[in-house]
């Protein structure tokens, strides 16, 4: 008979079992990790070079990407679908990958289709899953080409001579053709329609900030969304911009929403300091409205920068050549934001 009391023995046994279980888990983890080693990460495996794409990750559940059913009439598959994730997106788009990965990118599906009669007539589909509408709009807007045909089919859509580009909920979609061909553009429209019909997304998603810009002089479709480091300033995140044609020049206005007025003022102040520290010179303003919003006007190497706050909004003008036009637009923007802020307060 043991001299150790029974409860103590049970405790010792329990501790022993726990320790053994931990050791077993450690061993399993080591084995798994060892089997997953990627020597190319250390620059020692040249085989990694030239390897395209990745094994398709399991894409299941809501928002699953698909390709099969959207084959346009008169077209056939030219390549199998390829999938990319944030780790290997660079294998597909090289230096442009960071634009996506810094904007919430989750996965990309690509596939090429060629005409059944003419294989030189081909197009490539890119469906970027950007996790939400704002992210998708950001990459769409920052790549939007000038002089495009805006399409009414979707909230954000346009086409160029050889491509069709649009946002569908959380997805940013590109259809890029091998040539400027009406036949290709027609097929792209078909494919786009199928994507919009069959690829499920959340309903009624809106980007409300886009409605906060004054309409007078606004260049249609000129909105951009910078999720990070707008105008080279790292703290200027989630910034919407809009282009205006005023007095024969293009002026950029911007808006960012913060948690509260205090937060907005802090950001405006730090952005102002950033401009001054980088060579800007403070300029007085006679604009009464701007003064009331603690507006700051800065001459930045011959262009005008303005920053001010209205309630939780930080707003301003970026790189305007005409200071007077810039101040007028800033005032109009401020008045519009005042109404929005008022409505927010009343809510």
């Amino acid at each position: 008979m043991s001299s150790v009391p029974a409860p103590a023995r049970r405790l010792e046994s329990a501790v022993s079992v726990c320790l053994l279980a931990i050791l077993f888990l450690v061993a399993v983890c080591v084995l798994l990790k060892q089997g997953d080693v990627d020597m190319s990460r250390f620059g020692t495996d040249p085989v990694a070079a030239g390897v395209v794409g990745a094994k398709p990750p399991a894409l299941t559940g809501q928002g699953e990407l698909f390709v099969g059913p959207l084959l346009p009439e008169g077209f056939k598959k030219l390549s199998e679908s390829e999938f990319y994730n944030p780790e290997n997106l660079y294998e597909k788009i090289d230096g442009k990958a960071s634009l996506y990965t810094e904007s919430g990118f989750e996965k990309l599906l690509t596939q090429r289709f060629a005409g059944t009669q003419d294989e030189d007539l081909w197009m490539e589909l890119f469906i970027y899953d950007m996790a939400n509408l704002r992210n998708a709009f950001s990459v769409y807007s920052r790549q939007k080409r000038a002089d495009v045909e805006v399409l009414p089919d979707a909230q954000f859509a346009y086409r160029t001579g050889n491509g069709l580009y649009f946002v569908h909920g959380r997805y940013y979609v590109e259809l890029v053709g091998s040539s400027e061909s009406a036949e290709l553009l027609g097929a792209m429209s078909q494919a786009a329609e199928q994507i919009r019909t069959k690829l499920a997304v959340g309903k009624d998603e809106q980007i409300t900030e886009l409605t906060f810009f004054p309409q007078e002089g606004l260049v249609a479709g000129s909105n951009r969304l910078y999720l990070a480091s707008a105008f080279g300033f790292k703290d200027l995140t989630d910034i919407f911009t809009a282009g205006y044609e005023l007095r024969g020049e293009t002026i950029t206005a911007f808006i960012g929403r913060r948690l509260d007025a205090n937060d907005a003022q802090k950001l405006a102040e730090s952005y102002y300091r950033f401009l001054i520290e980088n060579g800007g010179a403070a300029k007085p303003t006679a604009n009464v409205s701007l003064k009331s919003w603690q507006g700051r006007v800065v001459d930045f190497y011959g262009t005008t920068e303005i920053v001010f706050t209205v309630g939780p909004f930080v707003a301003g003008i970026h790189e305007a050549d005409n200071r007077q036009a810039a101040e007028e637009l800033a005032a109009a923007l401020g008045h519009k934001l005042s109404k929005v802020a008022e409505a927010v307060r009343n809510d």
Partner: peptide, 12 residues
């Protein structure tokens, strides 16, 4: 001029 290095449109 824009959207490099891949581009994606003749408009670039």
């Amino acid at each position: 001029m824009t959207n490099g290095p891949t581009g994606g449109s003749v408009s670039d």
